[in-house]
Simulated assay, not measured.
Amino acid sequence: MSVHAVEKVFWEFGNKPARIDEFRRDPEAYLGRYNLTPEERAMVRNVDLKALAEHGVSTLLTIMVWPLLKGADEMPFDYLVHMNDGKLPDMGMTGFKAIGLKGYIRFRQLRAALRRALGRGGPARAGA
């Protein structure tokens, strides 16, 4: 397994975002250019943040690429949710502040999902 190869994919996405469109059209063909294991291909294809971090991939690269792949509406809170086993970290908030923040995040997620479903705003997801 090569962390370097996975990081190269993400670096090239950030360096030339037009490559993301090519990746979306045919993820397997795109990733075939890189010396990746099947597990690494799946991590990249699914943007599995937790697995990528555990594999040793720089979280600076994943946070750079996340909005390019997922859209700005899913940033930054969805990134935190994915990195925290599906839960939003409490960030020291309690009571109404925590409830309000979580409600706001859910609203943005719903809005982003509706936009994707209607074909407006935000990039399409790979494999979707």
Score class of each variant (00 low, 15 high):
residue 1 M to C: 07
residue 2 S to W: 07
residue 3 V to H: 10
residue 3 V to R: 04
residue 3 V to F: 15
residue 3 V to I: 15
residue 5 A to H: 12
residue 5 A to K: 04
residue 8 K to A: 01
residue 10 F to P: 00
residue 11 W to L: 10
residue 11 W to T: 14
residue 12 E to K: 12
residue 13 F to Q: 00
residue 13 F to R: 00
residue 13 F to W: 01
residue 13 F to N: 00
residue 14 G to Y: 15
residue 16 K to R: 04
residue 18 A to K: 05
residue 20 I to M: 00
residue 21 D to I: 03
residue 22 E to D: 02
residue 23 F to Y: 05
residue 24 R to D: 02
residue 27 P to Q: 07
residue 27 P to V: 08
residue 29 A to S: 14
residue 31 L to M: 04
residue 31 L to E: 06
residue 31 L to I: 05
residue 32 G to K: 05
residue 34 Y to I: 03
residue 37 T to P: 11
residue 37 T to E: 00
residue 39 E to G: 07
residue 39 E to D: 03
residue 40 E to I: 03
residue 40 E to F: 07
residue 41 R to T: 03
residue 41 R to L: 01
residue 42 A to E: 14
residue 43 M to Q: 14
residue 44 V to S: 12
residue 47 V to F: 01
residue 47 V to C: 03
residue 48 D to Q: 09
residue 49 L to C: 10
residue 50 K to E: 08
residue 51 A to K: 15
residue 51 A to R: 13
residue 52 L to R: 10
residue 52 L to S: 11
residue 52 L to M: 15
residue 53 A to N: 10
residue 53 A to Y: 07
residue 55 H to I: 07
residue 56 G to L: 09
residue 56 G to H: 13
residue 56 G to I: 13
residue 56 G to V: 13
residue 57 V to M: 00
residue 61 L to C: 07
residue 62 T to E: 03
residue 64 M to Q: 04
residue 65 V to E: 00
residue 66 W to E: 01
residue 67 P to L: 01
residue 69 L to T: 06
residue 70 K to R: 15
residue 72 A to I: 05
residue 73 D to N: 09
residue 76 P to E: 01
residue 78 D to K: 12
residue 82 H to F: 12
residue 85 D to T: 05
residue 86 G to R: 04
residue 89 P to L: 11
residue 89 P to E: 10
residue 90 D to L: 14
residue 90 D to W: 13
residue 91 M to F: 15
residue 91 M to K: 12
residue 91 M to N: 14
residue 91 M to P: 11
residue 93 M to I: 09
residue 94 T to A: 14
residue 95 G to V: 03
residue 95 G to S: 06
residue 96 F to V: 09
residue 97 K to T: 15
residue 97 K to H: 13
residue 98 A to Y: 13
residue 100 G to Q: 11
residue 100 G to E: 12
residue 101 L to F: 14
residue 102 K to L: 06
residue 102 K to Q: 11
residue 103 G to T: 10
residue 103 G to A: 13
residue 103 G to Y: 05
residue 104 Y to W: 03
residue 105 I to E: 00
residue 105 I to F: 12
residue 105 I to S: 03
residue 106 R to F: 08
residue 106 R to S: 05
residue 106 R to G: 04
residue 107 F to L: 00
residue 108 R to A: 06
residue 109 Q to S: 07
residue 110 L to H: 11
residue 110 L to M: 09
residue 110 L to W: 13
residue 111 R to C: 03
residue 111 R to Y: 11
residue 112 A to Y: 12
residue 112 A to C: 11
residue 114 L to D: 03
residue 114 L to C: 13
residue 114 L to S: 09
residue 116 R to F: 00
residue 116 R to M: 02
residue 117 A to G: 11
residue 117 A to N: 10
residue 118 L to A: 13
residue 119 G to H: 09
residue 121 G to P: 01
residue 121 G to L: 08
residue 121 G to Q: 09
residue 122 G to P: 01
residue 123 P to K: 08
residue 123 P to W: 02
residue 123 P to M: 02
residue 123 P to A: 06
residue 124 A to N: 08
residue 124 A to K: 15
residue 124 A to R: 12
residue 126 A to W: 08
residue 126 A to K: 06
